[in-house]
Design a protein around this nucleic acid. Structure first.
Length: 193
DNA sequence: TTGACGATGACCT
DNA sequence: GGTCATCGTCAAA
């Protein structure tokens, strides 16, 4: 598995969100290694994005990592689930890319064990909360570098056609709700919704 | 301290 | 399509 060059993270957040499609998200644990091709992402650009946790440069213990340099992990706990983001933007710019869905590549048996044997393959990683559970990504991964094990981004495959659209689940966020900042691989069955 | 509130998913009808 | 589980984070008291 070839880890991406660190400079890969040094591009505009919207470009990074699109570039991540087709890359591999890899997590190594004591139980084994899981990897999946990224098929769906969303960009969150703090300063002017009402839907982002870092809207208006709001800086708290939780959003702190987004103010640092790109290429680090921002995990967020939602109800009983955990969501994973890639920190983007220059140091001082609180931007991030949410990974919403991946297609299983390696460690599929382990994913079934974590998600439940009875599940369909398609149900394994077709959502932001599902993929973290399938791959064993936890809130303790907050702040890790994505350029080294146990959690990293690796070169993957050439994606099919990548299209964009409005983001999901951000309800009452003013104009930001309609920004086409969600990117996904067209006709891929692992894309959520 | 406390209370309100989700970038969701699973299960119900 | 609707409900609810259930918990960290944040801001106010």
């Amino acid at each position: 598995m070839e880890i991406v060059q660190h400079k890969f993270f040094h591009q505009k957040t919207l470009d990074l969100a699109k570039s991540l499609i087709g890359k591999l998200l890899v997590k190594e644990t004591d139980e084994g290694t899981c990897a999946g091709w990224i098929v769906e992402t969303e960009a969150y650009i703090g300063p002017g994005d009402r839907a982002a946790h870092s809207f208006g440069n709001r800086r708290t213990a939780r959003t702190e990592v987004m103010f640092g340099p790109p290429g680090y992990v921002y995990t967020y706990v939602m109800h009983t689930h955990c969501l994973v983001n890639v920190v983007s933007g220059r140091e001082g710019d609180p931007e991030a890319v949410l990974i919403r869905a991946v297609e299983p590549c390696e460690g599929v048996d382990l994913m079934f064990e974590r998600r439940g044997k009875g599940k369909k393959r398609k149900e394994l990683t077709s959502g932001p909360g599902k993929l973290t559970k399938a791959m064993g990504i936890v809130k303790e991964d907050y702040g890790r570098s994505l350029s080294e094990p146990p959690l990293y981004i690796a070169e993957g495959r050439e994606p099919g056609e990548v299209v964009s659209g409005p983001r999901i689940g951000i309800g009452n966020s003013g104009e930001a709700r309609d920004y086409p900042w969600r990117f996904f691989e067209k006709n891929n069955e692992f894309v959520s919704r």
